[in-house]
Design a protein around this nucleic acid. Structure first.
Length: 693
RNA sequence: GGCUGGGUAGCUCAGUUGGUUAGAGCAAACGACUCAUAAUCGUUAGGUCGUGGGUUCAACUCCCACCCCAGCCA
């Protein structure tokens, strides 16, 4: 039985979840689902890392007990995963007693074996980075990582004799006992290992840090947070003596296989794939396997190292003051779209740029136009011309006319992808090494999830082409048999594509399967055969589009507008100074369409107390309700000039507090020749709330 | 400063052991179609393959130097 134990890093619960957390978990969840399609027995672990200095400090700052603090934050992570359609089997927390016991047993075992020893150590200590630096590491006498102050400390500490395992680790990497994907990351680790490996300080004196797991052999110290954290992968599945406690704690999940459960440590270890970001490569590729070697346990089989999402021009984001949270985008545009974007846009291991535009583009072109629209057009055909049933394909040896090249090409690709060689890719499949894996599984074994998705979408592309080339909607009158054949194969192709896409977009894929008349569970790859979709099945009624196109681009907020005063926009009549580019850059229509400009009727206007510039307006925006808008026009306009009149308002500007009051929009103004600000007003009868475009 | 990886079409990237006209998707232009979500299909256009040298009959591919980007290490 193929086994696949997937882990994410346990996330440091010092801040709320961000895109990096979400991405790594989605990749692990997707990889795990692909393994399920391969028929593997799988287990998926995530969790939270709750010890360490930063947690203690954050709790202190809030005047809270650290445990109460982490209890609160871990909930934010716990609830995020179902929302992202990620289904971990277990969510472990390093503050759990069972984990404390594992860490202490591990420490004691290493100590007893003489693999942990006490040494006196001195150096510059950075509280912010939780580590010592040597004199020459310092930048301007400060911590090179955080720029914070450092103090000279001399202390006794305990060291794990990691250096002893340098050579075994090199051999494990070179032999492939532990694989690191993508492969260039393995080179990076081997490069790191060309230098002598240091021993690892695994203690922190309680005088500095209390929030951690106590060393069993010296109660004046707590354990270094990484030594503690990495062991979670073992605790969760019952290693190092955690089995009994797990059994009490996780009744339905981790019973030994002999008792009908899903297995325990012996089942899952070391068939593990650790998913992690490239920033924690050293801890996972060096500390962790050497710890395991010292403990006499097998080292992990695979590490998958993911890249970072770059959020574009950081300066821009900062000046906007409203960095777009990708998870909010997921909530706004749909989590399946976010999952698909994350998995499709970035090659696993590479960096990629995150932007709302890219997310919308990807969702519109591939999910709405290609996949969703194909489903819509073919099910419409089946309903209109074939009585809402899956039509019968022409038998392969039938006397009917040969398949069109476009349809043949689509079928061939589908068969190739799922390894259905019976009548498949012709010579290419026949000549292939019989032991060679399917293209899908070859990609999966190298963690190239993006390539698998690209293959699935290529199949969708060929199905669209086949449907256009064969035009059954046209030919059905004269040649219903051939038309039926085309419609059948497009439905079947959608079944195959949906299966291949299921790990990325499980909810949508299951919907596709249902809509093409497939009533069984998601097929396993091994049993996925072209032609298994039974003819004559009743199709459900044509529903709403699978993925509606996202039409309007939400605010990209052009710099020119952002930099303007917050309460009023000014259109200067002054000519551009010499040598300056005249005016802001040219923008596309989308940028303009993102502005929600409205006609507003001023219901009230009054001077703001203690301000000589601000007026506080209550503006009726019709369907948008009444907004409070603060406008810096008191020197130019009196409340009387505004009450009861109509003005133009930018309604979707991020709210902003001024002088203790919230401004929920911006009044549009132009600057007159003498510097006087003039309100922009609609000409005619446009009612409150009507859209300006 | 050392090491690793990268610099290929407007954008994001493929390019196998050097070998014909350097590919794909998106964006663009034109055309087709009308079953479909202003979708789909087809065609076209667009590249001194970071810079400069070198090896070779032949270089995106190999070698040297340099520049730029990212990461790791110090």
């Amino acid at each position: 039985m193929r086994r696949f134990y997937a882990t994410t890093p346990i996330y440091y619960v010092n801040a709320r979840p961000h895109i990096g957390h979400a991405y790594c978990t989605v990749v692990a969840d997707c990889a795990r689902r692909y393994e399920q399609l391969r028929g593997a027995s799988t287990y998926f672990l995530t969790g939270s890392d709750e010890h360490g200095q930063k947690v203690q400090e954050a709790a202190d700052k809030r005047g809270m007990n650290p445990q109460a603090h982490v209890d609160e934050l871990h909930r934010a992570f716990l609830t995020l995963w179902p929302e992202l359609h990620c289904l971990p089997d277990q969510f472990i927390r390093t503050t759990e007693a069972r984990h404390r016991h594992v860490v202490q047993r591990a420490l004691q075992q290493l100590f007893d074996a003489g693999l942990i020893e006490a040494r006196v150590f001195e150096g510059w200590y950075s509280t912010a980075a939780e580590r010592f630096w040597t004199e020459k590491d310092l930048v301007d006498g400060k911590c090179p990582d955080t720029g914070q102050a450092v103090v000279w400390l001399q202390e006794r500490n305990y060291f794990f004799l990691m250096s002893r395992y340098q050579q075994p680790l090199i051999e494990a990497l070179q032999s492939g006992t532990m694989r690191i994907l993508p492969a260039n990351r393995a080179n990076e680790v081997l490069g790191f290992l060309r230098e002598p490996l240091q021993d690892l300080c695994i203690s922190r004196p309680k005088s500095r840090l209390q929030w951690g797991i106590e060393l069993p052999f010296d109660r004046d110290f707590v354990c270094y947070v990484w030594f503690d954290a990495l062991l979670n992968y073992v605790t969760a599945i019952g290693g190092l003596g955690a089995e009994a406690e797990n059994r009490a704690l996780l009744p339905e999940a981790l019973q030994p296989e002999s008792e009908g459960g899903r297995g325990s440590f012996a089942t899952w270890w070391p068939s593990v794939t650790h998913f992690l970001g490239k920033d924690i490569l050293t801890t996972h590729a060096v500390y962790w396997p050497t710890m395991l070697m010292a403990l006499g346990l097998p080292i992990p089989r695979t590490l998958v190292v993911t890249g970072w999402w770059l959020m574009g021009d950081a300066k821009m984001s900062k000046s906007l003051g409203n960095v777009v949270d990708p998870l909010d985008l997921g909530r706004r545009h749909g989590m399946e779209r976010l999952r698909f974007f994350l998995l499709r846009e970035m090659a696993v291991g590479q960096d990629a740029n995150f932007s709302e535009e890219a997310l919308i583009r990807r969702a519109n072109t591939e999910l709405a136009n290609d996949l969703g629209n194909l489903l819509q057009r073919v099910t419409t055909l089946a309903h209109r011309s074939f009585g809402g049933l899956v039509p019968a394909p022409t038998p392969a040896d039938g006397a009917a006319r040969p398949l069109s090249p476009a349809l043949r090409s689509a079928i061939a690709m589908g068969r190739y992808l799922v390894g259905d060689e019976a009548t498949g890719w012709g010579a290419a499949a026949a000549d292939a090494d019989p032991g060679q894996a399917l293209p899908i599984t070859r990609n999966l074994d190298e963690a190239r999830l993006h390539s698998v998705l690209a293959d699935a979408m290529a199949l969708v592309g060929r199905l669209n082409a086949a449907l256009s080339a064969d035009a059954p909607f046209k030919t059905v009158k004269d040649d219903p048999v051939t038309a039926a054949n085309t419609v059948y194969h497009v439905l079947e192709g959608l079944r195959v594509a949906a299966t291949l896409l299921w790990p990325a977009i499980p909810v949508a894929a299951e919907d596709v399967l249902r809509r093409v008349g497939w009533h069984g569970p998601v097929p396993l790859l091994a049993s996925l055969r072209w032609g298994d979709l039974p003819a004559g099945q009743e199709l459900p009624p044509i529903g709403a589009p699978l993925f509606a196109r996202i039409e309007a681009l939400p605010p990209p907020a052009p710099a020119a507008v952002v930099d303007a005063p917050l309460t009023a926009t000014s259109i200067s009549t002054a000519p551009a100074a010499e040598g300056e580019v005249a005016g802001p850059p040219i923008i596309g229509y989308e940028a303009f369409a993102a502005l929600d400009l409205r006609v507003g009727v001023v219901l009230q206007a009054e001077a703001m107390p203690k301000s000589n510039k601000l007026l506080r307006l209550q503006v009726d925006l019709g369907p948008l309700g009444t907004r409070q808008i603060l406008a810096g026009v008191a020197l130019h306009l009196t409340p009387k000039q505004l009450v009861g009149t109509r003005i133009l308002v930018l309604a979707n500007l991020a709210p902003r507090k001024l002088m203790g009051q919230e401004s929920q929009g911006m009044m549009l103004l132009a600057e007159g020749p003498d510097g006087v600000l003039l309100p922009m007003r609609p000409d005619g009868e446009a009612p409150a709330g009507s859209r300006v475009s």
